[in-house]
Nucleic acid binder design. Structure first.
Length: 175
DNA sequence: AGATTGATCCAT
DNA sequence: TGGATCAATCTG
């Protein structure tokens, strides 16, 4: 149907990828069923210095995937209840990723994962895996072109602890 | 505004 | 090994 976005797409400056990813589709395949949604809101987490990023405290078992190859999934649990999903960007050894905050009418990263059935029994099949059909979760470009005027930009949500990094306007969303 | 909830990480 | 922290969401 659409064009599956590969590592090459994600091996670019994260802010560029964040804008370009708006209007593409997140696809989840479970058995013969598909769950789909157009990506409408994302946040960028960029580099080892970004205090809002999990990678700012260095490479750990959890965050090593952010230091890995672009086009892989980083899934983590937050507040013991919710999962959030990110796609890794930029070159290996440079930690960066994009958090998918909303798809169509599904607003909020925790709800996105719930909608796409990423939970305690499935997240390990996705975390640190490439975004492709084999993993069962990928991103497709279906040719929808978003006019720059439709893209809004603002501060990231829930990172007030991040010092001077909290005010970076690294959140992109559709009007 | 407050409760929820448990993996993660770092300082003891 | 313990405890603070947390890229969120729900309920009131």
């Amino acid at each position: 149907m659409g064009k599956i976005l590969s590592g090459k797409f994600f091996d670019r400056p994260t802010l560029t990828v964040a804008e370009d990813i708006l209007g593409t589709f997140l696809i989840r395949k479970i058995g013969r069923k598909k769950i789909e949604g157009m990506i409408t809101e994302v946040e960028a987490y960029i580099g080892p210095e970004d205090k809002a990023s999990h990678a700012s405290r260095g490479k750990t078992k959890r965050t090593e995937v952010m230091f890995g190859k672009p086009g892989h999934w980083y899934v983590y649990m937050i507040y013991g209840m919710y999962y959030c999903i990110n796609i890794v960007t930029e070159k290996e050894d440079y930690p960066a990723a994009i958090l998918i905050r909303a798809c169509d009418q599904v607003k909020g990263p925790g709800r996105v994962c719930k909608y796409f059935k990423i939970n305690g029994s499935t997240w390990l099949t996705i975390n640190k895996k490439p975004a492709d059909k084999k993993t069962g979760l990928w991103i497709e470009d279906r040719g929808i072109k978003i006019k720059p005027a439709r893209i809004l930009r603002g501060k990231r949500i829930g990172v007030d602890y991040a010092g001077r990094w909290k005010d970076k306007k690294w959140r992109f969303y559709l009007r």
